[in-house]
């Protein structure tokens, strides 16, 4: 019992951050993301004995979280439109250039189609390889690589085309 508790706490400490970020980029809402993470870890606790390989913990948790997220849609349709959801409320001060750029990039990422965003988040936040992402999302690896290519391509183009916008903020 004690060892299970210890394992669970270690798992929470090590992975709750990444899981929360992943959840956030799935649903664009901090509160929903928090609920998702809580639900996920609660399920993880119940099924902890089935987790044999600690290295697989992250992808295991992400699988649970994706399922939870899907269940959320089964329960009720999300009534907000994609764009309103995408609006990110960043209450932090936007004084530094980095912050402004982050804010701007977040909007761009949020506006990206789900199918591009998800592999990108898994790659950058999750640190998963192309194969691992393919397995997670139940896609073939070439598809994943193409989506990653398009995702970065879109973001890079958007970023390259808007130095003036940023200049405005810099004043």
């Amino acid at each position: 019992m004690a060892t299970k508790q210890v394992r669970y706490e270690a798992l929470v400490k090590a992975l709750h951050g990444d899981l929360f970020r992943y959840a956030y980029w799935l649903c664009h809402d901090k509160h929903v993301a928090e609920d998702l993470v809580q639900e996920t870890f609660l399920r993880a606790w119940r099924a902890l004995d089935s987790l044999k390989d600690e290295k697989a913990a992250k992808s295991w948790l992400i699988t649970i979280l994706r399922r939870e997220n899907a269940r959320r849609f089964e329960r009720k349709r999300f009534e907000m439109s994609e764009y309103e959801e995408a609006a990110i409320t960043d209450t932090k001060s936007t004084s530094s250039e980095q912050e402004i750029e982050n804010y701007w990039l977040r909007e761009k990422i949020a506006q990206m189609p789900e199918e591009y965003r998800e592999p990108l988040v898994l790659q950058i936040i999750g640190g998963f390889s192309g194969e691992e992402i393919a397995k997670q999302l139940d896609l073939n690896k070439n598809t994943v690589m193409t989506r990653l290519f398009r995702a970065r391509n879109q973001l890079k183009e958007a970023l390259d085309n808007t130095p003036k916008v940023r200049g405005q903020y810099n004043g």
């Binding site: 750029e101 982050n102 990108l120 950058i124 936040i125």
Partner: peptide
């Protein structure tokens, strides 16, 4: 770009 994306994400 990836650095920035990481910061943003």
């Amino acid at each position: 770009l990836d650095n920035k994306l990481f910061q943003a994400l």
